[in-house]
Design a protein around this nucleic acid. Structure first.
Lengths: 169, 169
DNA sequence: AAGATGGGACAGCCATATTGACGTATCTTG
DNA sequence: CAAGATACGTCAATATGGCTGTCCCATCTT
């Protein structure tokens, strides 16, 4: 098992090693925080026979109505086939509908139906309860720091997409 | 950085609605941050024919040597059967070994082999590169806030487990 | 007119999770 | 000591959400 010598299992003077505890703490808190937050909506999804993949699509369609499929593909970073299955399910359940693009008629613009909006709002409520409680417990300066670190984890090529998402509410 | 002015942009009486933008921002940053961070190790795992589930086990075994299987099950919150398969793979690859518990001989205590330690350290390097860069860009006060918010997302019944994890490095 | 792009569909495969049932060794407790 | 609880393993079936590869059609661009 050939490994770069920079990999250290033993104590060393490297400033990177000095950060090990801080990095492990971040890794762990991200894991627990993310998985526990997503668990908050599992029950709501299961009631409709849907999974987390459906929620992710639903969420971003709610966020940017008239989103073309290609844009959603970039956000989710999954294949067209995987997304296709999810969108078919959501369409069959009457939660999402598509319209032909007015500018480019090849595009299909996604939006939630009235039922879809109600359902998404219901799921969002569960997320809001969890996150708002965490925000409140941590305080506003902490929330700002929380955002800033997470922004630093997003690769440069994805950053524009995330910012675009957040400018229009 | 100051509190986003968007908090006061949408006039309404509901304090919950006032937080919608902040909550959506948190949901999105958590999604992108978490998924992009985990992607940092996919290549390293694929070289050994392993997946993310294997890394999660490997990571927590590295973190707490001689961890009993029951403790790992609580951390990962998956079923015994799912974990069993992962541990079999890791054992077959010579990355993880078990010893019978000395206190309770029913237990099997998990630890990394020498190869396992090297491999985990190599994967950890990739995580460290990403997280340390984000920490550096955001600054130390932001890191503290990042931790505090994430801690607030962990349900009370899991908190002791996470803290136990972090007290021994 | 030719090629690029947006989207849909079919087929098969893989990784990771689930539930349920059953077995064995070991510890705890009345 | 017997009975029950606990820690772990295992067999079997199933669901979810990804993937690759291929082919197709409509539409836009050049």
């Amino acid at each position: 098992m050939a490994v770069p010598s920079s990999v250290s299992v033993a104590p060393t003077a490297s400033p990177l090693f000095l950060r090990e505890h801080e990095v492990r703490r971040g890794v762990e808190l991200l894991f627990f925080g993310y998985t526990r937050l997503t668990r908050a909506i599992d029950d709501g999804l299961a009631e409709h026979g849907l999974g987390r993949a459906h929620h992710r699509a639903l969420y971003f369609i709610a966020r940017q109505p008239d989103l073309p499929i290609s844009a959603l593909l970039k956000i989710l970073a999954i294949t067209k086939q995987s997304l296709g299955r999810v969108l078919t399910d959501l369409g069959d359940k009457g939660l999402v509908e598509t319209r032909t693009g007015h500018v480019d008629r090849r595009q299909k613009l996604l939006r939630l139906t009235a039922d879809g909006m109600i359902f998404e709002a219901q799921l969002f409520d569960a997320l809001r309860n969890s996150l708002a409680a965490a925000y409140a417990a941590a305080g506003q300066e902490s929330v700002t720091g929380f955002w800033r670190v997470l922004e630093g984890l997003i690769p440069a090529e994805d950053k524009a997409m995330v910012i675009a998402l957040q400018k229009d509410i």
